[in-house]
Write a protein that binds this DNA or RNA. Structure first.
Lengths: 209, 209, 209, 209
DNA sequence: CATGAATGAGGCTTCATTCAT
DNA sequence: TATGAATGAAGCCTCATTCAT
């Protein structure tokens, strides 16, 4: 049984208190409106309308529009990370992890259209989101160095470059520049960037997961 | 003798008609405000105040805030491209061109602070700007393939990834994540991505220009 | 007990919801401002000031200044029609109806000064209002033809001429060209125009109602 | 040889000084813009653009936008009156004069589309124009009373009603409610209103002129 | 918790008018 | 006379936020 993609947070909050459910509905609504109108153009009124609430209710759950934006973005990120972790729990090889991680991320985010758009837009606006994404990635990058398969120095700049690359690939996937292969392509490029041998990079990036 | 960085367009328009001069002042003012407040947050009122004009004057020179945004971004891009072309006119080797181009671009844009910020912000908002940047880059990518030094297929996705990478590096340079070496680092990563041998990539990316 | 003429709609809305009351206040305020400044010159700011509201409140109740104009004019028309219908419910004779209708209309509209001005001004600007007025009049014109007392063909042109005549008479009444007798004079002219014998026309137009 | 309808005043000013010619061009341009956009919506900038002049030039010829409006309306009225006088110079019979006058007026004004629209719109806005029209009409009304063919008292109210009627008929002609017969229909109604016997009214109104 | 009316600052844009050339 | 750039007041409308119920 699947839940309509537009209310995943509401679905998860079904068993929580009423307040949490309203909050979740607002997050889902915000995702829909962000996708439709863009982060800046989305108005509180439109979000509450989408959530079928009175506009005043918004401020019971969020201090601010900014808080909402940030909560939405981090919630999406957390959820995606959660799903990725499940899929990659028992993978050790850094090359595999980077490759699979990138592909999974793009797959998950682009499938839930609203999430994909929200992520793309929020990424350049919310430093916290970039930091979050960076921290996650960094672990695998460092693992790769430790395993001796990445010949590059891991610093903030590298992390920012690599995580941005993923975001850019997601963006290309969303707006049609790339098709389903976006993940593999991006992964291949990343691996090369990290110093992995081109052949091995290709292999890892395109292997059926 | 240098001109204050905040009025480069005005300086170039000094000997043009009055209208062109005012227009240039508006562009410079917009660059300053964009850098200070961000693309979306910048208001026409603030821009005209920065330009020391009456707000109505704005609409003598631009139909719209959108038109201004686009003109500003493309003007900056054109100017940067112009300067880059001068610096790279007689370079044939694609590896050199990509390496030098990236470094030059980041150098030029980050030096004029306002330009750098404007570019970073506009990049994700204006498809025209991305297209422009992509077209420029593509020529060198194809050249590299023709010269047999890049082992990758040049398509829209690749172009978008590579040009985004440059933009991301500029961003990192602007916000302090990276220092003066940002250009070289980015160039090195790019070259690896394009399939250039890591040693040669490092060489090309870090060679004093 | 009478209500101050400048808040008749507010008075009628006294026992409705808060929103309806505010809306009514805006309509009354608009009528006042229209009378003072004219339809086109009236600004939303001035209307809300007259209604003692914040300007933004306006847009909670009306999409547009245009929507307001149209609502105001049609509300006034509807109210006048309502009062006229009450006064003429049991009159069958078309001559009487036209005569009395014209006189009543001018009487009612000119007594509530704001209504009179609003009607005069809106009449030439809002086709909907002319159509409304025309439809109302047409029934009596056709009745007169059926009763054999009007010797004229009823078509759009005739309807427009006759209803305009009433409006013009109201205008003359409002601006002082005519006094209380405007209604009777106009009615007499109308009846002559419709082919009623001059003596009978005079009789019907000046009979005490 | 005919002159394009859109520059009749310019044509008449051909032999006058340069200033008069510019002024005439502005009047023609204003007529065109008034017809296109309406009296209030017409901007000085658009009028000068239509006249192919710089906007500043406008104020060399007119103190004000209001002055222009008034000059335009009165010029049109004067010109129409002039043409009517020519056509009716040797007609004595008041019934003929009223009938022919109305028909002529509507014919002339509706043929020059711009004039027709300008007149219609200006009529309700400019008291001077109504006064002008009234004075012209009044003479014939009084003549009719003197000749014993109009059985009605000539006062300001009557004059306003009758002249408005002509304007309303012109309006109906312009917006398509009535066709070429508008003049005759209006004339017939007017004559009835003035107390002329219906048969004679019909005869006079529909006689080929 | 929820409602939804109200607020008012602030953004965009137009336009009559002025003024230096 | 003519030009056209510049002005700035004023209009329309949106929107984050508050508050009485």
């Amino acid at each position: 049984m699947t839940v309509p993609q537009s209310s995943l947070f509401a679905a998860k909050a079904k068993h929580l208190g009423k307040s949490a459910r309203s909050r979740a509905r607002l997050i889902d609504a915000a995702l829909a409106v962000f996708a439709r109108e863009g982060l800046e153009a989305a108005s509180v009124n439109e979000i509450t309308r989408e959530a079928e609430m009175a506009n005043g209710t918004f401020y019971l759950h969020f201090k601010d529009k900014d808080e909402l934006t940030s909560v939405v973005a981090l919630s999406v990120a957390a959820e995606i990370v959660h799903e990725m972790d499940e899929a990659m729990a028992d993978i050790d090889d850094a090359i595999e992890r980077v490759s699979l991680g990138t592909r999974q991320f793009i797959h998950i985010a682009s499938e839930r259209l609203n999430w994909g758009w929200a992520f793309c837009q929020a990424f350049w606006v919310l430093p916290e989101l970039r930091k979050e994404a960076g921290q996650y990635l960094r672990r695998d990058l460092e693992r790769g160095v430790a395993q001796g398969v990445f010949s590059i120095r891991v610093d903030d700049f590298l992390v920012e470059m690599v995580s941005s690359l993923v975001n850019v690939a997601l963006f290309a996937r969303m707006n049609g520049t790339a098709g389903a292969e976006a993940g593999s392509k991006a992964a291949e490029m990343q691996l090369r960037m990290l110093g992995v041998d081109p052949d091995r990079a290709k292999q890892a990036a395109w292997r059926a997961s």
